[in-house]
Nucleic acid binder design. Structure first.
Lengths: 242, 242
DNA sequence: GTTGTTGGCCAACACCTGTTGACCAACGCT
DNA sequence: AGCGTTGGTCAACAGGTGTTGGCCAACAAC
């Protein structure tokens, strides 16, 4: 199951002269973290007065590569997502991937630059924080393949796990910090929240376990919302036994 | 980080004439699912009156292979756990793995024959089921490397995901069925339970996220117990909005 | 002693991987 | 025109992978 079948894009395979393929779903996060890509000559366009990118012709190719990489990483994991397959999906040569992103690790780093844009915390009533978070995460995972790729690779690769950990620490921990008053309990409550949140993402978007995928969005919000609410705001007093 | 370091076992590397290496932790599940292993001659010992296995000399080797395979699969995932590395850990030649288990897939199938032996359901009071389940799963994951291997591979491989799904369906669903009266809600409640349970296992044993690994066993039971309790036994009435 | 089976090692095969360097077609300058 | 840069292809390399077949030592049976 590895050959002769272009996944979903790259409708025509032979003509690959000009860019503008079908994809480019959500802005593609082009400029971020290109890191390793050193081409032959010098970079630095001859004269750019403003600091904005001069909109090269290859930007479409870069975006196509990142799109294909996200899809492959999310679907197949790090090892099985070969550079050749990604390049084939993007309609270009594998060496282009190397030239733009240095190596496979750099490609992955550029492909998953996740921004779990957690919304305004103070505008929701305090007893609705759990449900709001669940609903937000549900839409986020559904519309963003990078998260699935990040989680899937994080479970297989040590470096991927570290990157996932970074994302959670930098973006999820502030939410807990803003919600929980006692600074000594922040790490504990963040751990609890992460347990339930990643469990939902894992079973629903990575493993795709049928009983979980059957649940509707409203059911999940109704059931998991109170859980997160409790993990975030409930006082921890009732100890069954010490 | 792939070479020249025998993981934990196989103390002496050169002499490998007789078996009886150090390992063989927990019975090793030898007879189960050997499937593909066809050796050169015919199997079938010349005369075995009783149906019990005649205790071959190679059983120690088989157990060592399975032990090493479990460890490698749990630590490195399916792709990175190479047969050569597993064989090196077990102190034998890679071709032995092939002869005994046919191919890598057969080895994995034999290595993860999981039995999440869920305890007596009726003996615990009904309002303690959640806490009991959490405590049981915690000990199970800690003492059993196969579960980590199964979950890690399940996230990377489609076949692994299916096997994990089988295990959950056959062994976790009966618990929910025995706990929940309404048969129409069984799948939903099983999904909820699986969400929280696998989330704990993922973050604690696969990703090893520091805030989660810092939590003590008692804290986890105290916090996640009520969650499972609610997922299993609470009536689902309070709908925020339809 | 001879013979057959078992347990094991060794060397290779075919394939796939990431990665590299050489080469080439446009296009923008001056 | 001439030239440099950009975007891209092609063919290969070195290394690792699963997998296979041939050979060998020990032991059991006749």
């Amino acid at each position: 199951m590895n050959d002769s079948k272009p996944r979903s894009k790259s409708g025509t395979d032979s003509d690959s002269t000009s860019g503008t393929r079908s994809g480019a779903k959500t802005g593609a996060t082009t400029g971020a973290a290109q890191g390793g890509g050193r081409s032959r000559g010098k970079r630095t366009p001859p004269a750019s007065s403003s600091a904005a990118a001069p909109a090269r012709r290859s930007d479409a190719t870069r975006a196509a590569i990142l799109d294909a990489a996200r899809e492959r990483f999310a679907a197949d994991g790090y090892e099985r997502a070969t550079i050749r397959a990604i390049a084939r999906d993007a309609g270009i040569d594998p060496s282009m991937v190397m030239r733009y992103y240095g190596n496979k690790e750099g490609l992955f780093a550029a492909a998953v630059s996740v921004d779990l844009k957690i919304p305004d915390l103070a505008s929701v009533p305090r007893d609705r924080i759990g449900a709001t978070l669940v609903a937000h995460f549900l839409t986020l995972w559904e519309e963003n393949e990078q998260l699935t790729a990040l989680l899937r690779v994080g479970t297989a690769d040590a470096a991927g796990a570290e990157r996932l950990q970074d994302v959670l620490r930098e973006q999820l921990l502030p939410v807990v910090r803003a919600t929980c008053p006692d600074p000594e309990q922040i790490r504990m409550r963040a751990a609890l929240v992460v347990t339930q949140t990643l469990g939902l993402a894992l079973t629903r978007h990575v493993l795709r376990l049928p009983p979980v995928t059957e649940l509707t969005r409203d059911e999940l919000v109704a059931w998991l919302g109170p859980t997160l609410q409790r993990y975030l705001t409930a006082p921890h007093s009732a100890w069954p036994e010490a």
